[in-house]
Design a protein around this nucleic acid. Structure first.
Lengths: 262, 262
DNA sequence: CGCTTCAGTAAACGTCGTTTACTGATATTA
DNA sequence: TAATATCAGTAAACGACGTTTACTGAAGCG
């Protein structure tokens, strides 16, 4: 469960085995260095503190040179975002694999806690990924990459949820209680995210979204420091919400182990 | 339920009746004009598009002149934030008062829908208010004003919740089920927000926070366009969550009236 | 009337993203 | 190997930004 997740774990279906000429190798290295510098600035100064000039300065080159690698600053941030989703995904997966496969309850618990922990340990990064999407350049080359990385990340949780669903852990809400309009949106959601299990009826999707909203909302509040003035430690509230949410999907809550901090 | 809420509704306990000398009046007017221009930029270009120079240009003056009114750009934004909280608060209150006082259920429904509606009609503003709090100048003069305005806004909902609580609409969770650490944080929350009703036991605070997290999270997702790629219309999901949340506090759900859009 | 207070300006500094034209070095091909 | 194309990176420039400093001029006040 190391913090630096290997982001080069998936060559995502590169047809050629990529012999990677010398030029390509050094290019890849520079690319990674740029993003590393960008992330340092992100952490140090927040999203607004990432500037091409500062990155270039830190690398001993000039700003226009970066345009050989990214179409714009926004594009760089988008690409970084994609990497971060991969890292978060790998982090959650690693946490997941630290628990025996048959202990689904344990895996669900550890995955969700890992999500929160990563978010808190990487506030600036989380803000970039899950914060407000300002009007970004719509045609940015790395736009799709970021999307795809997000989907991959979500898939981890979908898989766990699907397992609970398959085991019949919790009763599905009445299908009649779901209005047509909602059902329609839920199906669109399922299709867009790729959660297309045969189990995924409307009721299941409804439960899934409800769970996600609660945990996402709480972690957002915590990272965005929305209650910092009123509550210095949000962990008790998170654990309480976790307990309630998991109870609603038939997962037995267990308090966190003492030494689960990386 | 007009969109422009009168933000000058509360003179907040100004000790002197404020005869407001001529100079002070024109100053106040300029101040309002600055914030109006800032808001226009905010709406047009997002939070990053608000610049002193652009505001000054729009007003036919030069940027340094604005420093007679605000200590910095961040300070201006903070002051604007305070105004926006007042406006949102007034908007919700107005919606509230459009429903008979004895119809608590109706008031709760209309208030929460008003919150979402305002957020969607004022996305940029909402992002400024409820989005991530970047490392802002900590000693900004208008910092407290923004805080206080936020508190006032929250108070509207606290009052409604307290009424439900007083009527014994819903069962409180077991006090034994609330760990000491959580109880401690909940009391800190109550004190900091000023929700100090005699009814406000730990269990009640727990329910209140749970409700708020769910609705806040969902509206955030909607405004930040976090699921825009997967769900083009979040209203059905919002209504479903609203229904479930309100059910948990003993409020009978009713679908929205057709013509409730301003 | 004389003095002070204060709104606003002009000029400057250092920051930024981005474009353009250019220089070398590296790879490819003849 | 020699010619050529490709590509990484630079230098200079443009316009925009926040902010500071020194200054002007008018309104308010004794």
């Amino acid at each position: 469960m190391s913090k630096e997740a290997t982001s080069a774990q998936l060559n995502e279906a590169r047809p050629e085995a990529a012999p990677l000429s010398r030029r390509e190798r050094v290019r890849e290295a520079t690319l990674a260095e740029i993003k590393a510098a960008a992330r340092r600035r992100l952490v140090a100064q927040g999203s607004g503190g990432v500037s091409l000039r500062a990155i270039a300065r830190e690398m001993g080159m000039t700003a226009p040179g970066l345009y050989r690698y990214f179409a714009s600053l926004d594009d760089l941030l988008l690409s970084l975002e994609a990497d971060l989703f991969a890292e978060l995904g790998a982090y959650v997966t690693a946490a997941n694999e630290g628990v025996p496969e048959d202990d689904v309850d344990g895996r669900v618990l550890v995955s969700l806690r890992a999500f929160r922990f990563w978010a808190l340990a990487n506030r600036a990064e989380f803000t970039l990924m899950f914060g407000p999407a300002d009007p970004r350049h719509p045609g940015s080359p790395h736009e799709d990459a970021a999307m795809e990385a997000g989907r991959r990340f979500a898939a981890t949780f979908f898989a766990l949820f699907d397992r609970l669903l398959g085991e019949g852990r919790f009763p599905l809400p009445d299908a009649d209680g779901i209005p047509r309009a909602l059902s329609c949106q839920l199906r669109a959601f399922a299709e867009a995210t790729g959660y297309t299990s045969e189990n995924a009826a409307d009721g299941a999707l409804r439960v899934l979204t409800a769970c996600w909203v609660r945990l996402y909302g709480l972690v957002c509040m915590e990272v965005f420091q929305h209650m910092a003035f009123a509550m210095d430690d949000m962990e008790p509230l998170f654990e309480a919400e976790l307990r309630d949410v998991l109870e609603s999907v038939g997962v037995r809550y267990r308090p966190p182990a003492e030494g689960n901090r990386t």
